[in-house]
């Protein structure tokens, strides 16, 4: 199971990457895609939408189950990856390449409190 260093993680299986422009890229982890199985439907939030930390803002559905994707920190959606709804299986192929959306955080330091790779490893080993 891939858990790259240098990313932040949530216990609800999102990954976060800080970009040079201060925005945060969000996706779901390799563990999450493996649990869900073949993805067949993805719905992403519209740019401009304001989200609270922990708010459900995207949906991923596999053949067997539907799952919400949460905003890990509060902020404003600035971009979404439209290639993913067009090819949901891309998340199964590489969950860390197939990012879902970018947001500009209200608080630039908010993601520092989230899990690092080691902390996330501990969460999924439980």
């Amino acid at each position: 199971m891939k858990i790259p260093d240098g990313l932040r993680y949530t216990s609800s299986h999102e990954w976060l990457r800080r970009e040079s422009d201060g925005t945060i890229t969000v996706g779901i982890t390799d563990h999450a895609q493996a649990q869900l199985g073949d993805l067949v439907f993805v719905e992403l939030p519209a740019p401009g939408r304001k989200v609270a930390a922990g708010e459900a803002c995207a949906v991923v559905e596999s053949v067997k189950a539907a799952s919400d994707v949460y905003a890990p920190v509060a902020g404003t959606i600035v971009a979404r990856n439209d290639a993913v709804p067009a090819a949901p299986e891309s998340v199964n192929e590489d969950a860390f390449a197939a990012w879902l959306y970018r947001l500009r955080p209200d608080d630039a330091s908010a993601m520092d409190h989230l899990l690092d790779a080691r902390g996330y490893q501990a969460v999924i080993s439980d």
């Binding site: 199985g37 073949d38 067997k64 299986e89």
Partner: peptide
């Protein structure tokens, strides 16, 4: 077994 890799 649910699947061995890809159920599709």
């Amino acid at each position: 077994p649910l699947h061995y890799g890809s159920q599709i």
